[in-house]
C-alpha cells in the first residue's frame, strides 16, 4: 500500500515535470529585448549577466552579500573554537 502511494506520488510529480518541460517557453520578452539592446550602453559591462546583477539590480546583489554576512556571523556564533591553536603543522 505504502509502495503504491509512493509510486503514485512520483508519477504525479513526473507528469508535472513533463508538462512543465513540454510547455511553451517564450524566449521573446520586452525586458530581454531591452537588456540585449541597451545593456552594454547603460552599464558599460560587455558581460550582460554582470550588467544585470551589478548594473540594473545591484541592490539585489547587496542583499545577497548581506545573506552571506549573516551566514558567516551565524557560523562564528554557533561554532566556538574548542581550544587555542597549539599544534601547528608548520610549513605551508
Amino acid at each position: 500500500m505504502k509502495r503504491a502511494v509512493e509510486i503514485a506520488a512520483a508519477a504525479v510529480v513526473a507528469v508535472f515535470l513533463i508538462l512543465a518541460l513540454a510547455g511553451d517557453h517564450p524566449t521573446e520578452s520586452p525586458i530581454r529585448e531591452y537588456i540585449v539592446a541597451h545593456g552594454v550602453d547603460d552599464t558599460g559591462a560587455v558581460n550582460l549577466v554582470a550588467s544585470i546583477y551589478l548594473g540594473y539590480r545591484a541592490f539585489d546583489t547587496l542583499g545577497e552579500t548581506i545573506v552571506l554576512l549573516i551566514a558567516v556571523s551565524g557560523v562564528m556564533f554557533l561554532v566556538k573554537r574548542s581550544k587555542p591553536p597549539a599544534d601547528r603543522d608548520g610549513d605551508l
Partner: peptide, 23 residues
Amino acid sequence: AARFVYALNILIGAKVAAGASLI
C-alpha cells in the same frame, strides 16, 4: 571600461572569498 561594475566585482570577490573560507 565599466569601472563601477569592476569595482563592485572586486569588492564582492574579496567579500565572498573571505566569507566562504571563514565559514
